[in-house]
Write a protein that binds this DNA or RNA. Structure first.
Lengths: 325, 325
DNA sequence: GTGAAAGCGCTAACAG
DNA sequence: CTGTTAGCGCTTTCAC
């Protein structure tokens, strides 16, 4: 591994000059530049990232903190982040937090010791303080942390409003809403959307249950509820995985989808399309969410100005096989 | 941020002593140790990982190179790797290669400049040379790279043999096998398993098609094939996602699963259980695969001896809703 | 324009 | 057992 000193010697200049050339700052004469470049290619020189970080106190690492990559919503997000990070020369460190504040804090500290360039975080507000004190570029993804921290998020309220309305329009009279965990802002916004849509109509009965974003809980609670309330003829959920649970519950109860009961999810995970019948849902542009977050983070890292602190990406109702209209 | 020098001063010792204490190597007197520890807690000292890397030429970064985190097989793998990496104090960098040798090479170089500790790689043999030259600890995950590189893998052959046999036992007479891309060794082993099972019986007809591990291609090819060969009464696939495609094809053709046609996948992705009906499959212990790979890599990094270069993890046939037996 | 030199924070001989 | 010292490879004043 050639060092900057080898290059300098080979080119007959000083290391300072090579450094300047490498970083494109400060003056370097045209002929000198030539010589340096030649030396670099001759020696097949590659800069040592660690040494550089030590002096600049800055690396090109990006910390991606999310609850659990195993939740089908996140892989696409992570992929998007990684893709744009790569094109800008950054590298992403994967951190599964399990929504555990301690784990998040740990990762943050570990990465700070590595002079991480910034963070992209999907976390609830339980950990706001940690992030507020963090003197690093960062962006909140899918869930706001604090109004002062740039945030990229879907229009959750509108999405659930749309899905609820569409269920109503296609004739549902007894609507069950499977809420998410309301301490997560995105989830409570979705709930709000549901309620707004319900407020617009008179003769539709509202049913509620709460479940986390997991299959099992959703399945069990929906099944129990439907057993007690067989009049329900439409289900809107706060996540696609919850919708899968609802589908299972309905199937086991012998309900035909969408004839007897309609179901519409939320998220737009890729697996929704692979189902038979495919899942009707409110699709978030998950990839875009991740890509924007990465782009915005990198802007901050590179000291470019941000247009806004709040980026909302639109959401799209997609009717597939589990709804009638 | 306190440095080692601050600690030394505060404790009234030299930096070398502090360093020794920190690393637990070399002698440090009991009382000195006390003083150093006090200084550390007093100053809230945290070691600078970059400076350390610069001298030791070693970091605690692990590169995880896989085709695409968006493929449902990988998130669980990544999670497992991350979990064990964390418990051993390592940090994982996520690299999506798209099976592109250039991208892999790039990541490898980028990470080497950071003194990465080692690599966990899911790659085909197209890139064997790159890895053979790589003087770093590494382990091949899910796909062997070279006999000299430690490898963690499922018993693919046995798995497909089991699934095929079970289809035969439950009465299938016209079996379609949806192959994966055979340049991937795991895929060709699965094919071999299928053929071995078929060789055991007389009056079962064999059908083949090839598809990659993606939904769309599988769906289209299966649909076309079934249209031309309606006699097929059982489908074994080389991946769960391919099975999803097959399910869609059957559904659209009005075939009842598992009454008219049985389907069995391979992988054991979590979404298989969330389907209605849930997918029968050959379950790999994906988490274990990832966890073992990480453990084995770390052993190498920490110069512990390896028992073997080949770790095969068993596979389990699970009958759920898409098969009759 | 270019070079000399002083670090960045830590480790690792080598003395003592 | 402990301290001195010379780097690791690069950036960055500050002179020339």
């Amino acid at each position: 591994m050639a060092t900057i000193r080898d290059v300098a010697k080979h080119a007959g200049v000083s290391v300072a000059t090579v450094s300047r050339y490498l970083n494109g700052k400060g003056y370097v004469g045209a002929d000198t530049a030539q010589a340096v470049q030649r030396a670099i290619t001759d020696l097949n020189y590659e800069m040592n990232a660690v040494a550089r970080s030590l002096t600049t106190k800055q690396s090109n690492l990006i910390g991606l903190i999310l609850p659990d990559i195993t939740n089908p919503f996140f892989p696409e997000l992570a992929r998007a982040v990684e893709d744009v990070a790569l094109t800008y020369g950054y590298t992403v460190v994967l951190c599964n937090s399990d929504e555990n504040p301690e784990k998040e804090k740990n990762y943050i500290e570990t990465l700070q010791k590595k002079y991480v360039a910034g963070f992209i975080v999907t976390s609830s507000q339980h950990n706001r303080d940690v992030y507020m004190e963090l003197k690093k570029p960062m962006v909140a993804l899918d869930r706001p942390i604090d109004a002062s921290i740039p945030c990229v998020i879907s229009n959750n309220r509108q999405g659930l409003k749309d899905s609820t309305r569409s269920l109503i329009q296609s004739g549902c009279k007894e609507l069950l809403f499977v809420e998410g965990p309301n301490h997560i802002q995105s989830a409570s916004e979705r709930k709000q959307g549901f309620e707004e849509a319900m407020a617009e109509v008179q003769h539709v009965k509202e049913h509620h249950i709460q479940a986390n974003f997991h299959f099992d809980e959703s399945y069990e609670k929906v099944k129990a509820y439907l057993t007690a309330h067989p009049e329900v003829d439409g289900i809107a959920t706060s996540s696609d995985v919850a919708a899968l649970g609802a589908i299972r519950a309905c199937t086991e109860l012998g309900l035909a989808i969408p004839q007897d009961i309609q179901i519409i999810g939320f998220d737009g995970i890729q697996l929704g399309e692979m189902l038979s019948p495919p899942l009707s849902t409110v699709r978030q542009d998950i990839y875009k969410l991740g890509a924007m977050a990465a782009r915005i983070l990198i802007k901050q890292i590179e000291k470019e100005p941000l247009e806004s602190l709040y980026y909302e990406v639109p959401v799209e109702l997609v009717h597939r096989g589990t709804t009638r209209s």
